[in-house]
Amino acid sequence: MLADWWQYDFLRYTLFSGILIGLICPILGTFLIVRRLSMMADGLSHVTLSGVAAGMLLSKKIAFFGAVNPLFFGMLFSVVGSLFIERLRKVYKAYQDLAIPIILSAGLGLFTVLVSIADGFNTDLYSYLFGKIVTVSREDLYALIGVGAVVLGTVFFLYKELFAVSFDEEHARVSGVARKTINLWFMVLVALTIAASMRIVGVLLISAMITIPVAASLQIAGSFRQAILYATIFAEISVLSGLYFAYLLDWASGGTIVLMAVLVLMVVLASKKTGAWIRRMREENRA
């Protein structure tokens, strides 16, 4: 069984892509949750989905687009959606979270119209929705490697700026941090990550990989850096175990990965509660 992962190209692409997703999604997710923008991934995922549908429709109607991977249309739409969200956050300064449902609704509406024009769903679109191991190509892996390199490079070189903007934008502005540029670039990174990850996790489930491992890590982390570290570990466990069981049982990879992430969260919560109960019992015995 394990030998299959090295024997077939698509399984190797899936494995390496999954490892990258388990690395970059929780890193961005930690910053998103601290900034109280955990729903950002949901909003952009629907915009990305409309981009994929647009790419498929164009390839069906216009021969010129036939060789273009719908993934790149998804990336384009996702980046544009992230720019609109950032713009709407400035328009609705007192209600910044309103920007996300606006973009989410627009993306979902556009997707519905495009699907109706294209006369319904097809197998390819289903794999983008929920993820499917056999659909991951070398092109998808290369796109994810490129996005991963940019994300990791940005976090490495701009960690202090991202940290400052995430916890206190006003203080960051006074300190001379180019918060507008940082915010804009961060949104673009989230958008690219969502688009690049959808072949593995599925565009409708990618937000879970951005938030659930972070939710688990926040239960035990003592610092922001620890939160990133634990979230990454939990995400990798979820991705690797999810891919294994998805291949073994022929399940959708995205749903299986998310279920593993939820299971990890439940184990962390149960362990924390059990640990608190044991400490309480020890204190009572000493008294």
Score class of each variant (00 low, 15 high):
residue 43 G to Y: 09
residue 233 I to S: 12
residue 244 Y to D: 02
residue 61 K to D: 10
residue 248 L to S: 10
residue 50 S to L: 04
residue 94 A to E: 13
residue 120 G to W: 10
residue 40 M to E: 12
residue 79 V to T: 04
residue 59 S to W: 00
residue 238 S to A: 13
residue 121 F to K: 00
residue 14 T to E: 04
residue 180 K to L: 13
residue 103 I to L: 13
residue 19 I to G: 06
residue 177 V to D: 03
residue 182 I to L: 10
residue 11 L to S: 08
residue 132 K to L: 07
residue 128 Y to H: 06
residue 41 A to M: 10
residue 182 I to C: 01
residue 197 S to R: 00
residue 183 N to W: 11
residue 72 F to Y: 08
residue 112 T to C: 06
residue 165 V to P: 06
residue 202 G to E: 03
residue 79 V to G: 07
residue 133 I to T: 03
residue 60 K to R: 12
residue 210 I to M: 15
residue 282 R to C: 12
residue 51 G to F: 03
residue 110 L to N: 08
residue 219 Q to H: 10
residue 212 I to C: 00
residue 283 E to G: 06
residue 89 R to A: 14
residue 287 A to Q: 09
residue 178 A to E: 07
residue 130 F to L: 04
residue 119 D to M: 07
residue 246 A to R: 07
residue 194 I to P: 02
residue 179 R to W: 15
residue 128 Y to K: 00
residue 177 V to T: 02
residue 287 A to R: 10
residue 249 L to Y: 13
residue 124 D to K: 00
residue 169 E to V: 09
residue 176 G to N: 00
residue 84 F to I: 15
residue 131 G to A: 12
residue 236 E to Q: 15
residue 36 R to H: 11
residue 42 D to Y: 02
residue 118 A to K: 05
residue 268 V to P: 15
residue 228 I to T: 07
residue 156 F to C: 10
residue 200 I to E: 03
residue 16 F to P: 02
residue 209 M to S: 05
residue 181 T to C: 12
residue 280 R to Q: 13
residue 66 G to C: 04
residue 14 T to Y: 07
residue 130 F to P: 04
residue 24 I to A: 04
residue 126 Y to V: 02
residue 241 S to F: 14
residue 78 S to E: 11
residue 160 K to E: 14
residue 258 V to F: 11
residue 278 I to P: 14
residue 49 L to K: 01
residue 238 S to I: 11
residue 82 S to F: 06
residue 253 S to F: 11
residue 104 L to A: 05
residue 269 L to D: 10
residue 281 M to T: 12
residue 268 V to R: 05
residue 162 L to Q: 02
residue 132 K to P: 09
residue 148 G to A: 15
residue 166 S to L: 00
residue 281 M to N: 07
residue 42 D to L: 09
residue 246 A to K: 01
residue 16 F to Q: 09
residue 210 I to G: 10
residue 244 Y to K: 00
residue 205 L to P: 04
residue 46 H to V: 15
residue 76 L to S: 10
residue 230 Y to Q: 03
residue 43 G to M: 06
residue 164 A to M: 07
residue 274 T to D: 06
residue 4 D to L: 09
residue 103 I to D: 01
residue 127 S to W: 10
residue 38 S to Y: 09
residue 65 F to P: 14
residue 104 L to C: 01
residue 9 D to Q: 02
residue 272 K to C: 12
residue 101 P to M: 11
residue 177 V to H: 04
residue 71 L to A: 04
residue 51 G to C: 02
residue 32 L to E: 07
residue 255 G to D: 06
residue 121 F to I: 05
residue 138 R to K: 14
residue 202 G to C: 05
residue 222 G to E: 05
residue 122 N to M: 03
residue 97 D to V: 06
residue 62 I to W: 08
residue 178 A to W: 09
residue 54 A to R: 02
residue 92 Y to T: 14
residue 50 S to M: 08
residue 215 A to D: 06
